[in-house]
Nucleic acid binder design. Structure first.
Lengths: 164, 164
DNA sequence: CTTGACCTTGTAGTTACTACAGGGCGTATC
DNA sequence: GATACGCCCTGTAGTAACTACAAGGTCAAG
């Protein structure tokens, strides 16, 4: 892949702080090059130096670290606004880290809420699936379970999941 | 809210099959009017009759049922493609309901995978959050957990950058 | 007649990317 | 030197599932 054909920059076996092309950084962090450029455009990654007439981006260790941080936070489910806040905080090394904790805890709470919702949802779907007798549609319990009102009018104002 | 000021159509206390304005339908199903119009535009809800010079949409019970079905399926986490398939199936009442079951089961599987993922994630975040000692950022364990290589970036320490 | 809630259409914004299109650059090989 | 190929560049448009206006028309009450 990268680092064995005619590449311009150092390959991945080179020292970790050697300059890297966007492709190298992409491989090293498991991020597509297009995504990296996009992070730069929206201000999550600083614009790297450009080298040569090709105007190619040249990344160093600080980019690798920052992007790794970003991707790991994304993997943990933080959204980009949160990631941006965390990155800003990480740059202020002499500040109190309480703000970091607040963001992380808020996210943990959100995940726990989502887990609870999904658990309820799973039970309901299990019930729904379990009721299917493989008959014809007009006696299918799945449809019935999904649209209680389609057989007889009934409504209640419960709306909770989704949108979080 | 709806159904007590000078409204054009029947309020929600009226018979369930009375014609409804888009606002009434919105309240009855917990859906925004804009979303209902959007469902119509993408073919998930049939275009209702229009009444009067105002060209207002006029909904009947079949719309209420169909939209309730749609919203309930969305609440259960089906995406719109799946909902569309379910609605199409529900319209073909003499078909076998095995297809419905397949969709529901596939979705149940997806939910179970999502639950497993989220559980892992929660544990990881809990661990991360639990390590915070509320000190300064440059010794914050949360930041460290997100990017082990980053804190040393400008601090002269040198260690090999790991990457999985 | 004015007010104001409601409706209409249409377009653009959201999140977090992804997918091209159309072109330039760098190195290896013939 | 020519060619081939892989990588890079910018810019635009597309995705899901809505949401948020903007600019205007309609209806019923006071």
């Amino acid at each position: 892949m990268s680092g064995q054909s005619h590449r311009k920059f150092e390959s991945m076996d080179a020292p970790a702080d050697a300059p890297r092309s966007i492709g190298d950084l992409a491989v090293a962090t498991g991020t597509k090059a297009e995504t990296i450029r996009w992070y730069e455009r929206v201000g999550l990654l600083p614009a790297p130096a450009r080298q040569g007439r090709g105007n190619y981006r040249t990344y160093g260790k600080e980019h690798l670290d920052r992007l790794s941080f970003l991707r790991r936070a994304r993997d943990l489910g933080f959204n980009l606004e949160q990631v941006r806040a965390l990155l800003d905080l990480a740059d202020q090394k002499d500040q109190d880290c309480a703000a970091v904790s607040v963001i992380a805890r808020a996210h943990l709470d959100a995940i726990e809420r989502k887990l609870a919702d999904l658990t309820v949802l799973r039970e309901e779907l299990r019930r729904v699936v379990g009721q299917c007798q493989h008959g014809r549609i007009d006696e299918c319990r799945i449809i019935e379970a999904l649209a209680p009102g389609m057989k007889e009018a009934r409504q209640s104002g419960r709306r909770s999941a989704r949108r979080g």
